[in-house]
Design a protein around this nucleic acid. Structure first.
Lengths: 108, 108
DNA sequence: TGATTTCATCGTAGATCGACGATATACGAT
DNA sequence: ATCGTATATCGTCGATCTACGATGAAATCA
């Protein structure tokens, strides 16, 4: 129930990976076209190939997607388990915040 | 069910407010000590007063906390409704991603 | 072999973030 | 009126983010 700095850091990191519209759009695209390559994603967004590749890297490093580098076409897939896990973590953190019947009101 | 760019932008914005360990710690603190002022938060974190004030502003602008500017001590409170709403939004977005039985696999 | 396709990475420029100290503001108390 | 406390805002600096074009590597195709 304590606010663990390390845990905050971890959750914040995962949320950071999610906090960019392009990355959300990429996740959305991957959810509809399982196993598509970088180029497919590029076609679905108004961004340069290198930019999309960067965003994919961010998502990959956050563990939210997986990567199969089978040239020439590499495939990206959602890591649904990880996504659900982030969602659950945020949920429980917020639940704790909301449930906490603030034992002590410091001033009032 | 479409990936709406505007909606992505909005969710991403809220998540961005949450994606910093100090801000999570602040929310946590506020959940335990309802209605405390900036100084109280400062005492609970290894950050300068101006920095904490900044973070509070970010949370405020994201609508995740409320502010009652009753000088000399202003009070910040969690906006539990907004927090739950963010959590729910992320949840449903991820649910959609996970549920989507990717109709078409572009290549395989 | 050489050309093409697909993708990752590098280098870079501009924008934004995160932190701080210093300063300004608002108010209560003396 | 002045002082002290609590807080917000400003200015700044370094670090990180976001975007791009250019380049490099890997595999397939001609």
């Amino acid at each position: 129930m304590k606010s663990d700095p390390a845990q905050n850091e971890e959750i914040a990191g995962r949320l950071a990976a999610l906090s960019h519209p392009a990355r959300l759009a990429i996740l959305n695209h991957l959810s509809r076209f399982e196993g598509c390559g970088c180029g497919d994603v590029v076609d679905s967004l108004p961004l340069a190939q290198s930019t999309v590749s960067q965003h994919l890297k961010v998502l990959l490093e956050a563990g939210l997607i997986t990567h199969e580098r089978r040239m020439p076409r590499s495939t990206y897939r959602l890591n649904r388990e990880a996504l659900r896990s982030v969602s659950r973590e945020l949920n429980s953190m917020i639940d704790e915040c909301c449930a906490a019947n603030c034992c002590t009101s410091k001033h009032d």
